[in-house]
Simulated scan of single mutants.
Amino acid sequence: MRADVEAYREQVRSFIAEHGVPMQGEGVRVPRNQDEEKAIRAWLRALYEAGHLGGGWPREWGGRADHLAAHDLVLMEELIRGDAYRPLDQVMLASHAIIGFGSDTQKSELLPRIRAGEHIWCQLFSEPGAGSDLASLRTRAEPDGEEFVVTGQKIWSTDAQWADMGMLLARTDPTVDRHAGITAFVVPMDLPGMEIRPIREMTGYAEFCEVFLDGVRLGREHVLGEVNGGWKVVTSGLASERAFVGANAVQLERMFADLVSLAAAARLADGTTALEHEDVQARIADALTRVEEVTLIVRDTVDRILAGDEHPSDGPVAKLAYTETNVALCDLAMELISSSVSIDDADVEVARRWHHNYLWGRALTISGGASEIMRGLIGRQLLGLPRS
Protein backbone atom coordinates (compact mmCIF):
# COMPACT_ATOMS: atom_id res chain seq x y z
CA MET A 1 0.00 0.00 0.00
CA ARG A 2 2.84 2.40 0.82
CA ALA A 3 4.28 2.01 -2.68
CA ASP A 4 0.85 2.77 -4.19
CA VAL A 5 0.50 5.88 -2.04
CA GLU A 6 3.96 7.19 -2.93
CA ALA A 7 3.34 6.55 -6.62
CA TYR A 8 0.13 8.55 -6.31
CA ARG A 9 2.07 11.32 -4.54
CA GLU A 10 4.35 11.65 -7.55
CA GLN A 11 1.33 11.86 -9.86
CA VAL A 12 -0.14 14.66 -7.77
CA ARG A 13 3.14 16.57 -7.60
CA SER A 14 3.53 16.45 -11.37
CA PHE A 15 -0.05 17.54 -11.92
CA ILE A 16 0.27 20.50 -9.54
CA ALA A 17 3.58 21.57 -11.08
CA GLU A 18 2.01 21.59 -14.54
CA HIS A 19 -1.50 22.88 -13.86
CA GLY A 20 -1.65 24.33 -10.33
CA VAL A 21 -3.09 27.77 -9.61
CA PRO A 22 -0.78 29.32 -6.98
CA MET A 23 -2.15 30.82 -3.79
CA GLN A 24 -1.90 34.58 -3.45
CA GLY A 25 1.28 35.81 -1.81
CA GLU A 26 -0.47 36.73 1.42
CA GLY A 27 -1.98 33.27 1.70
CA VAL A 28 -5.54 34.54 1.33
CA ARG A 29 -8.03 31.75 0.70
CA VAL A 30 -10.63 33.69 -1.30
CA PRO A 31 -10.38 35.32 -4.74
CA ARG A 32 -9.74 39.04 -5.00
CA ASN A 33 -11.45 39.53 -8.34
CA GLN A 34 -13.48 37.73 -11.01
CA ASP A 35 -10.42 36.62 -12.96
CA GLU A 36 -9.06 34.82 -9.91
CA GLU A 37 -12.46 33.31 -9.23
CA LYS A 38 -12.57 31.89 -12.77
CA ALA A 39 -9.05 30.51 -12.40
CA ILE A 40 -9.90 28.80 -9.11
CA ARG A 41 -13.06 27.26 -10.54
CA ALA A 42 -11.11 25.96 -13.53
CA TRP A 43 -8.44 24.56 -11.21
CA LEU A 44 -11.01 22.71 -9.10
CA ARG A 45 -12.59 21.34 -12.28
CA ALA A 46 -9.19 20.11 -13.45
CA LEU A 47 -8.60 18.34 -10.13
CA TYR A 48 -11.93 16.54 -10.45
CA GLU A 49 -11.34 15.63 -14.10
CA ALA A 50 -7.95 14.15 -13.21
CA GLY A 51 -9.53 12.09 -10.43
CA HIS A 52 -7.62 13.79 -7.64
CA LEU A 53 -10.75 15.34 -6.18
CA GLY A 54 -13.80 13.14 -5.80
CA GLY A 55 -11.76 9.98 -6.17
CA GLY A 56 -13.60 8.41 -3.25
CA TRP A 57 -17.05 9.15 -4.67
CA PRO A 58 -19.18 6.24 -5.95
CA ARG A 59 -18.12 5.17 -9.42
CA GLU A 60 -21.38 6.33 -11.03
CA TRP A 61 -20.59 9.88 -9.92
CA GLY A 62 -16.98 9.91 -11.07
CA GLY A 63 -15.09 8.06 -8.34
CA ARG A 64 -11.92 6.07 -9.04
CA ALA A 65 -11.72 2.30 -8.75
CA ASP A 66 -8.15 2.54 -7.42
CA HIS A 67 -8.88 5.23 -4.83
CA LEU A 68 -7.43 4.79 -1.35
CA ALA A 69 -8.43 6.82 1.69
CA ALA A 70 -4.80 7.92 2.04
CA HIS A 71 -4.97 9.58 -1.39
CA ASP A 72 -7.12 12.39 0.02
CA LEU A 73 -4.47 13.16 2.63
CA VAL A 74 -1.68 13.04 0.04
CA LEU A 75 -3.55 15.48 -2.18
CA MET A 76 -3.95 18.02 0.61
CA GLU A 77 -0.31 17.69 1.63
CA GLU A 78 0.97 18.22 -1.89
CA LEU A 79 -1.33 21.15 -2.57
CA ILE A 80 0.19 22.86 0.47
CA ARG A 81 3.76 21.99 -0.59
CA GLY A 82 3.00 23.23 -4.09
CA ASP A 83 1.44 26.44 -2.75
CA ALA A 84 -1.65 25.73 -4.85
CA TYR A 85 -5.26 26.50 -4.05
CA ARG A 86 -6.85 23.77 -1.96
CA PRO A 87 -10.42 22.52 -2.34
CA LEU A 88 -12.80 24.49 -0.18
CA ASP A 89 -13.96 22.50 2.82
CA GLN A 90 -17.53 23.62 2.19
CA VAL A 91 -17.51 21.85 -1.18
CA MET A 92 -16.08 18.71 0.40
CA LEU A 93 -18.71 18.69 3.14
CA ALA A 94 -21.54 19.37 0.72
CA SER A 95 -20.55 16.62 -1.70
CA HIS A 96 -20.20 14.08 1.12
CA ALA A 97 -23.63 15.03 2.51
CA ILE A 98 -25.28 14.89 -0.92
CA ILE A 99 -23.80 11.47 -1.65
CA GLY A 100 -24.82 10.15 1.76
CA PHE A 101 -28.25 11.73 2.16
CA GLY A 102 -29.34 13.32 -1.11
CA SER A 103 -32.18 12.11 -3.29
CA ASP A 104 -31.43 10.71 -6.72
CA THR A 105 -32.57 14.01 -8.20
CA GLN A 106 -30.30 16.03 -5.91
CA LYS A 107 -27.33 13.82 -6.77
CA SER A 108 -27.90 14.05 -10.51
CA GLU A 109 -28.40 17.81 -10.42
CA LEU A 110 -25.76 18.87 -7.89
CA LEU A 111 -22.80 16.47 -8.05
CA PRO A 112 -21.95 17.07 -11.75
CA ARG A 113 -21.97 20.82 -11.13
CA ILE A 114 -19.53 20.44 -8.25
CA ARG A 115 -17.21 18.41 -10.48
CA ALA A 116 -17.47 21.01 -13.24
CA GLY A 117 -16.55 23.88 -10.93
CA GLU A 118 -19.96 25.44 -11.59
CA HIS A 119 -21.05 25.27 -7.97
CA ILE A 120 -19.01 26.64 -5.12
CA TRP A 121 -20.65 26.01 -1.75
CA CYS A 122 -20.74 27.78 1.58
CA GLN A 123 -21.89 26.67 5.01
CA LEU A 124 -24.88 28.39 6.57
CA PHE A 125 -24.40 26.93 10.05
CA SER A 126 -23.05 29.34 12.67
CA GLU A 127 -25.11 32.17 14.08
CA PRO A 128 -24.30 35.15 16.33
CA GLY A 129 -25.54 33.11 19.31
CA ALA A 130 -24.68 29.64 18.02
CA GLY A 131 -21.05 29.09 17.09
CA SER A 132 -19.27 26.35 18.97
CA ASP A 133 -22.67 25.29 20.35
CA LEU A 134 -24.26 24.84 16.95
CA ALA A 135 -27.31 22.99 18.27
CA SER A 136 -28.55 26.22 19.87
CA LEU A 137 -29.23 27.78 16.45
CA ARG A 138 -32.40 29.86 16.14
CA THR A 139 -32.90 30.28 12.38
CA ARG A 140 -36.43 29.02 11.69
CA ALA A 141 -37.78 27.07 8.73
CA GLU A 142 -41.56 27.11 9.21
CA PRO A 143 -43.79 24.83 7.08
CA ASP A 144 -46.17 26.63 4.72
CA GLY A 145 -47.99 24.09 2.59
CA GLU A 146 -45.38 22.25 0.53
CA GLU A 147 -42.74 24.86 1.30
CA PHE A 148 -40.67 26.13 4.22
CA VAL A 149 -40.29 29.82 5.01
CA VAL A 150 -36.85 30.53 6.44
CA THR A 151 -36.03 33.49 8.67
CA GLY A 152 -32.80 34.08 10.54
CA GLN A 153 -29.17 35.15 10.40
CA LYS A 154 -25.98 33.22 9.76
CA ILE A 155 -22.41 34.41 10.31
CA TRP A 156 -18.81 33.38 9.58
CA SER A 157 -19.96 31.90 6.27
CA THR A 158 -16.71 31.58 4.32
CA ASP A 159 -16.96 32.40 0.61
CA ALA A 160 -20.68 33.18 0.78
CA GLN A 161 -20.17 36.27 -1.40
CA TRP A 162 -19.17 34.15 -4.38
CA ALA A 163 -20.86 30.84 -3.52
CA ASP A 164 -23.55 29.47 -5.79
CA MET A 165 -25.07 27.13 -3.22
CA GLY A 166 -25.29 26.96 0.54
CA MET A 167 -25.80 24.11 2.98
CA LEU A 168 -28.24 25.45 5.57
CA LEU A 169 -29.20 24.24 9.02
CA ALA A 170 -32.49 25.57 10.35
CA ARG A 171 -34.86 24.68 13.15
CA THR A 172 -38.03 23.04 11.86
CA ASP A 173 -39.45 21.80 15.17
CA PRO A 174 -38.85 23.92 18.27
CA THR A 175 -40.85 21.57 20.51
CA VAL A 176 -38.40 18.64 20.55
CA ASP A 177 -34.84 18.13 21.76
CA ARG A 178 -32.64 20.81 20.21
CA HIS A 179 -30.63 18.30 18.13
CA ALA A 180 -33.76 16.53 16.94
CA GLY A 181 -35.61 19.55 15.54
CA ILE A 182 -33.02 20.66 12.96
CA THR A 183 -33.24 20.13 9.19
CA ALA A 184 -30.54 20.45 6.54
CA PHE A 185 -31.31 22.22 3.26
CA VAL A 186 -29.48 22.85 -0.01
CA VAL A 187 -30.02 26.50 -0.87
CA PRO A 188 -29.34 28.48 -4.05
CA MET A 189 -27.64 31.65 -2.84
CA ASP A 190 -29.56 33.92 -5.23
CA LEU A 191 -33.04 33.20 -3.88
CA PRO A 192 -35.28 36.17 -2.99
CA GLY A 193 -34.85 37.13 0.65
CA MET A 194 -31.12 36.25 0.80
CA GLU A 195 -28.79 39.11 1.72
CA ILE A 196 -25.02 38.56 1.90
CA ARG A 197 -22.77 41.03 3.68
CA PRO A 198 -18.99 40.41 3.54
CA ILE A 199 -17.14 41.05 6.81
CA ARG A 200 -13.82 42.81 6.31
CA GLU A 201 -11.26 41.40 8.74
CA MET A 202 -8.13 42.97 10.16
CA THR A 203 -6.16 41.17 7.43
CA GLY A 204 -7.75 43.60 4.97
CA TYR A 205 -9.70 40.87 3.23
CA ALA A 206 -13.27 39.60 3.54
CA GLU A 207 -13.21 35.85 3.83
CA PHE A 208 -16.30 35.63 6.04
CA CYS A 209 -19.82 36.89 5.52
CA GLU A 210 -23.03 37.53 7.35
CA VAL A 211 -26.06 36.02 5.61
CA PHE A 212 -29.57 37.24 6.35
CA LEU A 213 -32.58 35.13 5.40
CA ASP A 214 -35.84 37.08 5.35
CA GLY A 215 -38.77 34.93 4.30
CA VAL A 216 -36.71 32.72 1.99
CA ARG A 217 -38.99 30.04 0.52
CA LEU A 218 -37.62 26.53 0.10
CA GLY A 219 -39.45 23.59 -1.43
CA ARG A 220 -39.34 19.99 -0.27
CA GLU A 221 -36.77 19.40 -3.02
CA HIS A 222 -34.35 21.54 -1.01
CA VAL A 223 -34.49 19.28 2.06
CA LEU A 224 -31.32 17.21 2.40
CA GLY A 225 -32.07 13.93 4.13
CA GLU A 226 -35.11 13.81 6.37
CA VAL A 227 -37.04 16.67 7.93
CA ASN A 228 -35.72 17.09 11.50
CA GLY A 229 -32.79 14.82 10.59
CA GLY A 230 -30.30 17.58 9.84
CA TRP A 231 -28.01 16.93 12.78
CA LYS A 232 -27.14 13.49 11.42
CA VAL A 233 -26.44 15.00 8.00
CA VAL A 234 -24.06 17.70 9.22
CA THR A 235 -22.15 15.56 11.71
CA SER A 236 -21.58 12.91 9.07
CA GLY A 237 -20.29 15.55 6.66
CA LEU A 238 -17.97 17.11 9.20
CA ALA A 239 -16.56 13.69 10.05
CA SER A 240 -15.66 13.18 6.38
CA GLU A 241 -13.09 15.99 6.60
CA ARG A 242 -11.15 14.62 9.57
CA ALA A 243 -8.47 12.88 7.51
CA PHE A 244 -7.42 16.26 6.14
CA VAL A 245 -6.08 17.16 9.58
CA GLY A 246 -2.85 15.52 8.43
CA ALA A 247 -2.19 18.40 6.08
CA ASN A 248 -1.80 20.69 9.08
CA ALA A 249 1.56 19.12 9.89
CA VAL A 250 2.82 19.99 6.41
CA GLN A 251 1.61 23.55 6.88
CA LEU A 252 3.62 23.87 10.10
CA GLU A 253 6.70 22.41 8.43
CA ARG A 254 6.50 25.10 5.77
CA MET A 255 5.99 27.78 8.37
CA PHE A 256 9.02 26.60 10.34
CA ALA A 257 11.20 26.74 7.23
CA ASP A 258 9.97 30.31 6.66
CA LEU A 259 10.77 31.12 10.30
CA VAL A 260 14.39 30.02 9.90
CA SER A 261 14.63 31.99 6.66
CA LEU A 262 13.24 35.05 8.40
CA ALA A 263 15.72 34.76 11.28
CA ALA A 264 18.58 34.55 8.80
CA ALA A 265 17.33 37.60 6.89
CA ALA A 266 16.43 39.86 9.82
CA ARG A 267 19.33 42.22 10.55
CA LEU A 268 19.72 43.76 13.98
CA ALA A 269 21.16 47.16 14.91
CA ASP A 270 24.64 45.70 15.47
CA GLY A 271 24.78 44.38 11.89
CA THR A 272 24.29 40.74 12.80
CA THR A 273 21.33 38.59 11.82
CA ALA A 274 18.87 37.34 14.40
CA LEU A 275 19.88 33.75 13.65
CA GLU A 276 23.42 34.41 14.85
CA HIS A 277 22.23 34.92 18.44
CA GLU A 278 22.03 31.99 20.83
CA ASP A 279 18.77 33.08 22.43
CA VAL A 280 17.09 33.15 19.01
CA GLN A 281 18.61 29.78 18.15
CA ALA A 282 17.21 28.37 21.40
CA ARG A 283 13.73 29.68 20.67
CA ILE A 284 13.84 28.33 17.14
CA ALA A 285 14.90 24.96 18.52
CA ASP A 286 11.93 25.09 20.88
CA ALA A 287 9.67 25.93 17.93
CA LEU A 288 11.02 22.95 16.02
CA THR A 289 10.27 20.72 19.00
CA ARG A 290 6.67 21.90 19.01
CA VAL A 291 6.33 21.36 15.26
CA GLU A 292 7.69 17.82 15.59
CA GLU A 293 5.29 17.13 18.45
CA VAL A 294 2.34 18.23 16.33
CA THR A 295 3.59 16.12 13.42
CA LEU A 296 3.65 13.01 15.62
CA ILE A 297 0.20 13.76 17.05
CA VAL A 298 -1.26 14.34 13.60
CA ARG A 299 0.33 11.25 12.06
CA ASP A 300 -0.97 9.10 14.90
CA THR A 301 -4.44 10.60 14.45
CA VAL A 302 -4.44 10.04 10.70
CA ASP A 303 -3.23 6.45 11.07
CA ARG A 304 -6.13 5.69 13.40
CA ILE A 305 -8.63 7.43 11.12
CA LEU A 306 -7.46 5.43 8.12
CA ALA A 307 -7.55 2.23 10.17
CA GLY A 308 -11.04 2.95 11.46
CA ASP A 309 -9.80 3.02 15.05
CA GLU A 310 -10.36 6.67 15.86
CA HIS A 311 -10.99 7.95 19.39
CA PRO A 312 -13.46 10.86 19.81
CA SER A 313 -10.70 13.02 21.29
CA ASP A 314 -8.29 12.57 18.36
CA GLY A 315 -9.71 15.45 16.31
CA PRO A 316 -9.77 17.94 19.21
CA VAL A 317 -6.21 17.02 20.26
CA ALA A 318 -4.83 17.44 16.74
CA LYS A 319 -6.76 20.66 16.13
CA LEU A 320 -5.66 22.22 19.43
CA ALA A 321 -2.02 21.23 18.95
CA TYR A 322 -1.93 22.65 15.41
CA THR A 323 -3.66 25.97 16.04
CA GLU A 324 -1.80 26.80 19.24
CA THR A 325 1.57 25.94 17.68
CA ASN A 326 0.64 28.06 14.68
CA VAL A 327 0.06 31.03 17.00
CA ALA A 328 3.39 30.42 18.77
CA LEU A 329 5.29 30.43 15.46
CA CYS A 330 3.56 33.63 14.38
CA ASP A 331 4.35 35.33 17.70
CA LEU A 332 8.06 34.50 17.38
CA ALA A 333 8.13 35.65 13.75
CA MET A 334 6.61 38.99 14.66
CA GLU A 335 9.16 39.46 17.44
CA LEU A 336 11.96 38.87 14.92
CA ILE A 337 10.44 41.36 12.50
CA SER A 338 9.87 44.05 15.13
CA SER A 339 13.40 43.72 16.56
CA SER A 340 15.13 43.96 13.17
CA VAL A 341 16.24 47.18 11.49
CA SER A 342 16.05 45.69 8.00
CA ILE A 343 15.14 42.51 6.14
CA ASP A 344 16.89 41.29 3.01
CA ASP A 345 14.94 42.18 -0.12
CA ALA A 346 14.62 38.53 -1.08
CA ASP A 347 12.69 37.84 2.12
CA VAL A 348 10.32 40.81 2.14
CA GLU A 349 7.58 38.54 0.79
CA VAL A 350 8.25 36.10 3.64
CA ALA A 351 7.82 38.92 6.16
CA ARG A 352 4.60 40.02 4.47
CA ARG A 353 3.27 36.49 4.70
CA TRP A 354 4.10 36.39 8.40
CA HIS A 355 2.13 39.59 8.99
CA HIS A 356 -0.91 37.98 7.40
CA ASN A 357 -0.43 34.68 9.26
CA TYR A 358 -0.15 36.54 12.56
CA LEU A 359 -3.44 38.33 12.00
CA TRP A 360 -5.15 35.18 10.73
CA GLY A 361 -3.73 32.80 13.34
CA ARG A 362 -6.16 33.73 16.11
CA ALA A 363 -9.07 32.99 13.81
CA LEU A 364 -7.83 29.41 13.50
CA THR A 365 -8.07 29.00 17.28
CA ILE A 366 -11.79 29.83 16.99
CA SER A 367 -12.98 28.35 13.69
CA GLY A 368 -13.98 24.70 13.81
CA GLY A 369 -14.30 24.91 17.58
CA ALA A 370 -12.57 27.37 19.90
CA SER A 371 -9.49 26.19 21.79
CA GLU A 372 -11.43 26.44 25.05
CA ILE A 373 -14.10 24.12 23.63
CA MET A 374 -11.42 21.71 22.40
CA ARG A 375 -9.82 21.59 25.86
CA GLY A 376 -13.20 20.81 27.38
CA LEU A 377 -13.78 17.98 24.91
CA ILE A 378 -10.33 16.54 25.55
CA GLY A 379 -10.88 16.71 29.31
CA ARG A 380 -14.18 14.85 29.14
CA GLN A 381 -13.54 12.43 26.28
CA LEU A 382 -9.89 11.52 26.87
CA LEU A 383 -9.30 12.20 30.56
CA GLY A 384 -12.77 11.44 31.87
CA LEU A 385 -13.02 14.74 33.76
CA PRO A 386 -16.42 16.06 34.91
CA ARG A 387 -18.06 18.97 33.14
CA SER A 388 -17.52 21.27 36.09
Rank of each mutant, 00 (worst) to 15 (best):
D270L: 03
D303A: 13
V327Y: 02
A39Y: 00
G82C: 13
Q90E: 15
L332G: 04
K154M: 01
V294G: 03
G51D: 04
D4I: 14
R178V: 09
S108C: 08
V223G: 07
G152Y: 12
L268Q: 10
G51Q: 04
R41V: 06
E60R: 13
R41L: 13
E109Q: 15
G27I: 09
D314C: 06
T158C: 10
L73C: 12
N248P: 04
V298D: 13
R81Q: 08
L168W: 09
A363G: 13
T172L: 09
L68M: 13
V186K: 07
V348E: 13
L238K: 10
K107N: 05
L191A: 06
E324Y: 07
L288D: 09
E253V: 01
W57N: 15
M374K: 15
A370P: 01
D89P: 09
Q153W: 07
A285W: 07
R45K: 11
L275N: 01
Q161Y: 02
N228Q: 05
R299Q: 14
L53G: 02
G308Q: 05
V186T: 11
D303F: 08
E292L: 15
G51Y: 04
G246A: 07
G166C: 06
D144C: 12
E335V: 02
R115P: 12
N326W: 00
M334N: 06
I98M: 14
P143F: 11
E201W: 01
L79V: 02
A318W: 01
F148V: 04
P143V: 12
I114L: 14
M76I: 08
R197Y: 11
M1T: 00
D258A: 06
T295Q: 15
A170W: 02
T183R: 03
M334F: 11
L288V: 06
I284P: 02
Q251F: 05
L385E: 12
G55V: 05
A130Q: 11
H67R: 14
W61A: 12
V298S: 15
K319T: 02
G63C: 05
